[in-house]
Amino acid sequence: MIAFLIQTLRIATPYLFAAAGGIISERAGIIALTLEGFMLTGAFCAALGSYYTGSPWVGILAGAAGGVLAALLHALATIRYRADQVVVGIAMNLLAVGVTRFFLRLAFDSSSNSPRIPGFGGGQVGSGVFSSLANPLVWFGILCMIGVGWMLFRTPFGLRVRAAGEKPEAALSVGVPVRRVRWLAVALSGASAALGGAYLALDQHQFTDGMTAGRGFIALAAVIFGKWDPKRVTIACLLFAAAETMQIRLQSLQLVPSQFVEMIPYVLTIVALAGVVGRAVQPAALGKAVD
């Protein structure tokens, strides 16, 4: 049972990071389709940083920096130039795939993975469950989500973020620099999501091509299913992770095909959007540009 919980937490960690980023971004009115790309960028930069300095802590910083860089590009296109957020979001994900592959070839002359990098814990897949608790990022993930909740609802900046996402006109009229708030929110979301990617790379002690494997979209599903509320989103992340853990543990029994477990987050999100049980209503100004 304890092992089950720990494994769930471990699987949930990247979701928590990325979903925390997703909440900030979407609450500020910028659609978080880019989480996947930010995560992948973060994973790659973390691998680079850790490989060249030998310190996973530098890897964490490098990962976050990479995520911020990608996020700033996204902000430049969507906030400064008011380009369509969905289009640019999709393109950012493609860009992350392309750039990480290109530099994987350039840095490590490989098209599939980096060499082994210093990371946290044992690094073998399925190695001692408890060793994963030695990975500080597991705890940062939870802290990150708590921090976002605190920031959104207990700080002036959080109020401005929510204003930028709900009623930017009103916020502008009382002097809130909406675009600057959005820039900052997107940068924070890039850093947070990138940490989720960094966790993956440092946990597995290498970067592999496309290693985020749709986790950014699961995080987005958690954000929507959790109705943009940090507490509920945390529960959604844990729920999705628990389903995966269950599936991994019961694999040998062949009770449910793995493909059906994969579908759970997405189906739940569609159901939530359709409003069968307590409709998910997005921030009012989500996806809308501000002059």
């Binding site: 860009l95 795939v97 392309g98 290109f102």
Partner: peptide, 11 residues
């Protein structure tokens, strides 16, 4: 690397 094309497409 052929991945350059992915980058260009995104750009």
């Amino acid at each position: 690397p052929k991945q350059m094309v992915d980058v260009l497409t995104a750009v």
